[in-house]
Simulated assay, not measured.
Amino acid sequence: MTIRTKIISIAAVSGGGKTTITKKLGLKLKNSKELFFDDYDFEDSPEDLINWVKEGADYNLWNLDPLLSDIDFLINSKEVPSYILLDYPFAYKNDKMKKLIDLSIYIDTPLDVAMARRLIRDYKNNSITEIHNDLNFYLNNGRIAYLEMETTIKPNSDTVIDGTFSPDKIVKLIIKEIRDRGL
C-alpha cells in the first residue's frame, strides 16, 4: 500500500516564524522534507512586490515552477517522504500550488512582533541608519504587503495559530491539527 505524501504549507508575514516553525516541525514529523520559498529564484514573477500588491496581488503571476519541480521530484523519488513542509507565503492563492496542499497553516504574528524579529534577525551587524531606512520603507511602502497577508492569506488558510506562542507550542498545535485531520 502506497501512502500519499501530505503537503503542509506554513505562511506568515516576514518575521512571523515561517522558517523557524517549518524547521522545528521537520524535526518532529518522521520522514518529512522541508522546502523554503526564499531558497528559490522565481523568474518571470513580480519583481516589485509593492506594485504587485497595489495592482491587486494576483498570486498566479508567480511562476512557481522551480518549487513545483522540487515537490514533484520528492513525491516521485525512491524514498517518498510522508510529509513535505513548505515555508510558503501564499496558502491556496496560487492555482498550481493549491491543488497540492493538504493543509495550510497561517501563523498570525502581530506586525510589531514580526517587525522586531525581522530587525533582530536581519540587522545584527548593521548601522542604525540602515535600520532607520528599513523602518521608513516599511512605513511608507512595505506595510501594504504585510496587510495583504493579513487580509488575503490568513482567511485563505485552514488553520490560524497565534504567532506569539513559543515555537514549541506552535509546533505542538500543528501536530495536533495534522492528527485531528487524519493527515
Rank of each mutant, 00 (worst) to 15 (best):
D112Y: 05
R118L: 13
F137A: 06
D72P: 01
K99H: 07
F73I: 01
D65S: 14
N141Y: 12
P110C: 13
E148C: 04
V160P: 05
I107S: 00
D134N: 10
L135I: 11
F73G: 06
D134S: 11
Y138G: 08
I161V: 04
D158L: 12
D168P: 08
F73N: 11
E130Q: 12
W62A: 07
R121I: 02
D108H: 06
L85P: 07
N125M: 12
L103G: 05
I120E: 12
I131K: 01
D158K: 03
I101Y: 09
W62T: 02
A91P: 11
D95N: 02
I161A: 03
I175D: 01
L173I: 10
I174W: 03
W62F: 14
S127P: 09
D108F: 14
M97N: 03
N125I: 02
H132Y: 13
K93I: 05
K169L: 15
P110Q: 10
D112S: 13
R118H: 15
N76P: 04
Y146S: 09
I178G: 05
T109A: 03
T152Q: 15
I153C: 03
I153P: 09
L85M: 04
D102S: 10
M115V: 07
D70M: 05
T151L: 06
E79D: 10
K154I: 11
A91F: 00
Y106M: 10
N63P: 09
Y88D: 11
L61W: 09
P110N: 12
P155L: 09
T152D: 01
K93H: 13
D134T: 12
M149Y: 08
D95Y: 14
S69C: 11
K154N: 13
N63L: 08
I131Y: 03
N76T: 06
L103E: 00
I178E: 08
T159Y: 10
L111P: 03
V160Y: 07
F165I: 09
P89A: 03
Y83L: 03
L147F: 06
N136Q: 13
A114Y: 06
L74R: 07
S82G: 05
F73L: 05
E79A: 01
S77G: 05
D65P: 09
L85Y: 01
N63S: 12
E150R: 15
K96I: 14
A91V: 04
T152M: 11
D65N: 10
I75A: 11
W62C: 04
L103S: 02
S104C: 11
N136C: 15
S82C: 02
S166T: 12
E130G: 06
Y92V: 12
N141P: 07
K99W: 14
T164V: 15
Y88C: 06
A114T: 11
H132P: 00
A145T: 08
K124S: 15
D112E: 13
D65R: 14
D65A: 07
P155D: 00
